[in-house]
Simulated scan of single mutants.
Amino acid sequence: MAGAVRLEPVDERNLEPLLSVAAAEAEPSDVMPPVEAPAGWSAARREAFREFHRAHFGGFDGPTGTVMFAILLGGEVVGMIRMARRAEPGTVETGMWLGRSARGQGVGAAALRELLNVAAAHGMRTVAAETTVDNTGALGVLARCGAKLRSDGGTIHAEICLDSAPPMP
C-alpha cells in the first residue's frame, strides 16, 4: 500500500472529490441508497449523492446519528467509511466502499482499523456490519480486523468487540 490511510469527516471540502471517485470508480448502487433517477451517474443521481452525504454532516449528534468519513490514501480520497449509532448501547454499525483502484491493497482493513479507534474513543464497545456472502472483499477486511462472522442465509453479520485489541496488519 503506497501512503498512509487516514479518515477525514465528510464535509463540503471533500464531498466533490468523494463524488468524483464514486462516479469514476464505483457503481451508484455500491455507494448510496437507490434513487429515482436515470441509470448511471446522471446529474440527478450526482445531486442525490451530495444530498445523501450532506444529511449526515451532523455526525453522531445530528438527526441521523451517523458519521461519514472520506478514506484518504496518500492524501487522496479513495472511498468512504461510516459509523452509525445503533439502538444497542455502546454499538455502532459500519459500512464502507472503495474506488476500484484502491481495492486489494489493504486500504479497507487500514480504514476499518482507524474507524475502530474512533469508535473506541467515542466509548463504543462493539462495531457491527452486514454484508452478503459473495462480498469477498468485505468479508476479508472484516476477518482481518477480528470480526466474528455469523451467516443468516445470504447475509453475513459481523461483530468486532472493542474490549480487546484489534489484530495487527
Rank of each mutant, 00 (worst) to 15 (best):
A44K: 01
R54C: 06
F60Q: 14
V133Q: 04
R46Q: 15
A84Q: 13
G99N: 06
T94H: 07
I81T: 03
L115V: 09
A119C: 04
A121L: 13
A37D: 00
D30M: 08
A128P: 08
E51P: 00
V35K: 00
R46A: 11
A44W: 00
L115P: 07
R82S: 14
L73I: 01
D30H: 07
L116K: 07
R46T: 09
A39K: 08
A119I: 04
G40V: 01
A119T: 06
W97P: 06
N117E: 15
M32S: 08
R54F: 11
G59L: 09
G75F: 13
L72T: 04
R103I: 05
A37R: 00
A70R: 02
W41M: 08
R50T: 04
G90P: 11
R113V: 03
P63W: 09
P63Y: 11
R50P: 06
A70T: 02
A109S: 15
E93I: 05
V31H: 01
D30L: 09
G123H: 04
G75Y: 12
Q105T: 01
G123E: 10
L116E: 11
E47W: 06
E93H: 05
V92M: 09
A109Y: 07
V127I: 02
T126L: 13
F60P: 13
I81N: 01
R46E: 14
L115D: 08
M83V: 04
L112N: 11
A70Q: 03
D61S: 15
A37F: 00
F52C: 05
W97C: 11
A55V: 08
R54V: 10
G74L: 00
P63R: 13
G108Y: 06
R85M: 10
T132V: 14
G79A: 02
A119M: 03
A120L: 15
V127C: 03
A119E: 09
F49G: 08
G75P: 04
V67K: 12
P38D: 10
M124E: 15
H122L: 13
E76T: 14
W41A: 04
V118Y: 06
T64Y: 02
A55Y: 10
I81D: 06
T66V: 13
F57E: 07
V118Q: 11
L115R: 10
R100K: 14
G40C: 01
N117S: 14
E51L: 12
V77Q: 05
T94L: 05
G59A: 10
R125Q: 15
W41V: 07
R103K: 03
A128N: 07
M83I: 09
E36D: 13
P89I: 07
A48K: 03
P33E: 09
I81E: 06
P34F: 11
V77P: 02
P38I: 00
E76S: 14
P63E: 15
G106M: 04
D30E: 15
F57R: 06
W97Y: 09
V35N: 00
D61T: 14
V67R: 14
R85P: 05
G104E: 03
P89M: 08
R103H: 05
V127Q: 04
E36P: 08
